[in-house]
């Protein structure tokens, strides 16, 4: 049961690893970048899971909003959530820069397949 209790963490690691595999295995630049996005998303899930509070007797924390429940009972740690807001912004900007570069590669090479790009470079030199 111990390992089932960590279900979310398992899921986060699985997503991270699927993304990581995609970055390495795919030869299409856009697919690599999509996989990179997945890779980062797994980390967000990891952080958000980390914030969840569960007391030893099993009561769950409530959302960290200024409500009656949160004033009296336990609440989830808002810090990791806030960090992930920033990290999502970072991830989106990374993808934006990546896609902008890929658009330029498509313009200059006429392809976004890594093998064809390598071949074109070999022809040049």
């Amino acid at each position: 049961m111990e390992s089932l209790g960590h279900f979310n963490y398992w899921l986060a690691i699985v997503i991270i690893m699927i993304g990581f595999y995609g970055v390495i295995a795919r030869r299409n630049l856009l697919k690599q970048v999509i996989a990179l996005g997945l890779f980062q998303t797994g980390v967000f899930l990891f952080y958000v899971t980390m914030g969840v509070y569960r007391s030893p007797d099993g009561t769950r924390g409530v959302a960290p909003i200024w409500t009656d429940a949160a004033k009296t009972g336990p609440f989830d740690n808002p810090l990791p959530h806030v960090l992930m807001l920033t990290a999502i912004v970072v991830s989106v900007s990374t993808l934006a820069v990546a896609v902008a570069i890929i658009v330029n590669i498509q313009r200059k090479y006429g392809t976004i397949e890594e093998d064809e790009i390598l071949e074109a470079d070999k022809r040049d030199s």
């Binding site: 991270i16 990581f20 970055v23 630049l29 690599q32 970048v33 990179l36 890779f39 980062q40 980390v43 990891f46 952080y47 980390m50 990791p80 990290a87 990374t94 820069v97 990546a98 570069i101 890929i102 330029n104 590669i105 200059k108 090479y109 790009i117 470079d121 040049d124």
Partner: peptide, 26 residues
């Protein structure tokens, strides 16, 4: 034009590195 490919390679590897750092900080 090879600068574009080099930059994208840098971006992918750099982002992987930064994400590992983020996980470690987590």
């Amino acid at each position: 034009r090879r600068a574009l490919v080099a930059s994208l390679k840098y971006l992918i590897l750099g982002s992987i590195g930064a994400t590992f750092i983020l996980l470690g900080i987590g």
